[in-house]
Design a protein around this nucleic acid. Structure first.
Lengths: 215, 215, 215, 215
DNA sequence: AATGAATGAGTTTTCATTCAT
DNA sequence: TATGAATGAAAACTCATTCAT
């Protein structure tokens, strides 16, 4: 994720892999800062310390690179989610960990929010027909569904909660805060980015979802 | 909101107002579909059936037009909110009406979501320092604060809810659904745009917020 | 045909017409010298003393300009043909005038040969479906058919000559000499471009066709 | 001429010859389809199933390869001509065989026409100073001259026909049909490529030349 | 207040060629 | 002899903006 060393290593990665990784990394930043149409391939190549042509060689064109970045981003968050081992926790704890993770991931990976924002402007044109992505998210549904079922069985969660409804609500509460953080800060005249504000928000979201589930 | 009549009115004296309105209207669509950098001034002028130069005459440049569109959009939703007359309703009913309105407004004005999405990519650069907008939103805070206070006093709402926290949560639950509707539809393999899906979501949001407040 | 005056006149042509004419003229030269893929839009614009963007504004893209040039070229030769007034001449004289004109036109408009050469490399992709062009050539067929019919009736031409067969043969004998003049000059070690060589060729073609028709 | 076997032969020692042949073959196709400037070295290498760098190794650069292809092409047709053994035939039969061969060779080797077309756009720059080519064509002149002399002596051909004049006319009548087959088909609205059309043309050319010689 | 033509800097993309191994 | 990666110059095309009327 972090910017690699400037000079390519002669050992660890074969050069082409290094080049591709550099480009993906640079593109992720550029696209998240400026969106697809605002991004400049020149700038991506410069950020990646790579010849511009390599971008076309490996990714076809600007949009091809954009697609690759999006897929990579989704894989990143879902992979981290899968490491949470929620099945091993009691329902309430599992849910709290899931919500906390979701919030924290966005806190630390603000680019992800910006990327999805932009992709939605393009009506998700660049991830449509990605069976790969749908596969990733089936697993997500199962994970949440499993927590809900266990919670319901144990009497700690309300019954009949649809996992997708719930996921969208959790994502809403976490994601919107960051996706709209600049306009919200502007209209309310407060800086919502600082540590105390985000910490406050994190707790609010956990309480908010908890209230619904425990009802 | 709707596309204005194609031919300019006979009331010739108001030509300039007509031209400006045409441009704002066309720009709102164009910017919401393609974002600031994706939008084309040629296309805006064409959509407005107006000479391109008029855009520069009335709005200075592309970004000036973009600012005007944003302000216009915020004024639109806040003006409609102010017509709800929430102070006249009991707290629970007032809250439900507010949530319902928020959801419905976005359902009917999807462009607003796209516009804010894009403006957040630009870090709200175009609405910063707009005292006018901050003024609009102080009134919003008061409205919500008033409902909360009354609800708390009457024992139907939990105490000590911060109006801004709550507003952000309500907005999250309504807005995110639309802002991310395309990626959500893609990753879950369902069309979230159809009537039954949005209707279902609307109720879910009302329940979700209700559970928190009533707790 | 000839390069227009460098500065655009304020009177004769409206500016846009002047600009388009300049571009067509410059493009005709450039395309005939270098072919479609060898031509450079920069060079065309420079030759036309016109801003490069005008090319895109008026002709869409490089290929659009190429199509326009081709149509213009065909119109040019066919228009000149139609001025020959062949119907007023006796068959043998008419045929001689037609052959002489064809040869002379190519002598003076070598670009036309190069242009068609190149278009044939592209399998005539840029003039396909041009009903306009087919219309132009129906008239050509009629003109030749009329001469042949009259000649046959008067007993000076052999019977049953197909006008298209004959036209292709005449065109072959005139056109090939110019289309392949460089390779022919190279392999035979003679310069076929000089006046005496072309004059000699002109007579040869007239004799050649005459021998066939009179047979 | 025909596409070589896809896999290189086991006779490993001749790898370099195989590679060169593959490249020449692929280049011939590519250049005849797209011309020198339209051809892509990437595509040639891909068609040849050979590493792009080999092209530079064996032929210097794109133009070097183009020159090699042209020379190869001329050698091909002249070699086949020399196998005709025209000296053994009576003048009229020899001439018919020569014309028939010329037409048929182009029918079967359309690439040759396209190649010369393109080379003429470049003003034969790539075959100039090729003494080798001039040598090849001196023999051609002698062959035709010999047939004419014999025919004249036997009283079956008109006297004083210049072999180069005649050769150019024969080549014209055969070559132009193919070189311009696409534009001719387009402007006359007929497909001149089909078997019956080419067969008809072949006979027309033989008659046409015959009428001139026998006169 | 309005129009059509023009501009120039910038943007994506292409392509022949070379490098390093 | 052969390969995959890399390069840099140049190409087509775009676009916000301004000019002249």
């Amino acid at each position: 994720m972090a910017q690699q060393a400037r000079k390519r290593p002669n050992d660890v990665l074969r050069d082409s892999e290094w080049t591709k990784a550099q480009l993906l990394d640079a593109a992720r930043l550029e696209f998240s800062e400026k969106g697809l149409s605002g991004a400049r391939v020149n700038d991506i190549a410069a950020r990646a310390s790579v010849n511009k042509q390599m971008l076309y060689y490996y990714f076809g064109d600007k949009e091809g690179l954009y697609c690759a970045v999006l897929n990579h981003a989704y894989e990143g968050i879902r992979a981290r989610e899968n490491e949470l081992d929620l099945a091993a926790l009691a329902p309430v704890a599992a849910m709290e960990r899931f919500i906390g993770f979701t919030f924290d991931y966005l806190t630390e990976n603000r680019y992800f929010v910006a990327l999805l924002n932009d992709e939605n402007i393009h009506k998700a044109r660049h991830i449509l027909d990605s069976e790969h992505l749908q596969g990733l998210h089936e697993r997500l549904q199962e994970t949440i569904g499993d927590i809900l079922t266990r919670g319901e069985r144990e009497g700690v969660f309300r019954p009949n909660v649809d996992p997708i409804d719930l996921y969208i609500s959790i994502a809403s509460l976490c994601y919107f805060y960051y996706s709209n953080i600049h306009t919200l800060s502007a209209i309310f005249g407060r800086d919502l980015s600082d540590r105390s504000a985000t910490h406050h928000r994190r707790q609010h979201v956990i309480d908010f979802v908890g209230a619904y589930l425990e009802k």
